[in-house]
């Protein structure tokens, strides 16, 4: 654990909580892509199956359970509780265009051809592109509320901080994981355009 890893995790947690609270407080999921949230729930589910097979630390278990719980709670709010406010017409990105190629890639490029390892790899690849339906939705509607942009900022910041964590770990522990690093770079790059808008416009974005 280093400072980049910890702040990355906290940034990720902040993003998830911000989104949940926004939907809960406004009683609306307008402007939020339910498809991105389904993909994130799938990411956490496939990555954290090791909760059932191995114990790493209390911190590790707690964060995994919180991430999974919040992901499903968010999907529930969007598709069940506040379904009437869900803007399905603008959330038109096809999830299978991401899930199928990512699944194929996970089977081809992984560290070990085993069930849990392939699901872990799948989750890493899928996470890197899971935000695309949300970004696509913003580009279609041409706007994003301030609180939505805060959510995206912390979500993007998290993986960028993990990149620094991996640089740190390479220098001080000689550790590197090429799959996580390359996927993390792709993920961070996808947010660059958004980061630029967030910093220059500050408030809600309108294209």
């Amino acid at each position: 654990m280093n400072i980049f890893r910890l702040t990355g995790d906290l940034s990720h947690l902040a993003a998830i909580i911000i989104l949940l609270l926004k939907i809960w407080k406004t009683r609306s999921c307008a402007g939020i892509s339910g498809k991105s949230q389904i993909l994130f729930a799938l990411v956490f589910t496939t990555r954290y199956l090791d909760l059932l097979t191995s114990f790493i630390s209390l911190y590790n278990t707690t964060m995994k359970v919180i991430y999974i719980g919040c992901a499903y709670a968010t999907v529930y709010l969007i598709y069940m509780k506040f379904k009437a406010t869900y803007d399905g017409n603008h959330d038109s990105f096809r999830m299978e265009f991401l899930v199928v190629p990512v699944g194929g890639l996970a089977c081809l490029v992984n560290h070990d051809f085993s069930f849990l390892e392939i699901l872990w790899t799948f989750s890493i690849y899928l996470e890197s592109v899971a935000i695309l339906p949300q970004l696509f939705m913003i580009s279609k509607t041409g706007e994003a509320e301030t609180i939505t942009t805060h959510y995206l900022f912390f979500l993007g910041l998290y993986r960028a901080l993990y990149l620094f964590n991996w640089i740190w770990r390479f220098y001080f522990e000689g550790f590197f994981d090429m799959i996580a690093i390359v996927a993390g770079m792709v993920q961070t790059i996808l947010y660059c355009d958004f980061f630029y808008l967030y910093v220059t416009k500050g408030q809600g974005i309108s294209l």
């Binding site: 790493i56 590790n60 964060m63 799959i179």
Partner: peptide, 10 residues
């Protein structure tokens, strides 16, 4: 370890 996954990372 050069390319082992780290399940401690989230």
């Amino acid at each position: 370890s050069d390319s082992q996954t780290d399940k401690d990372e989230l």
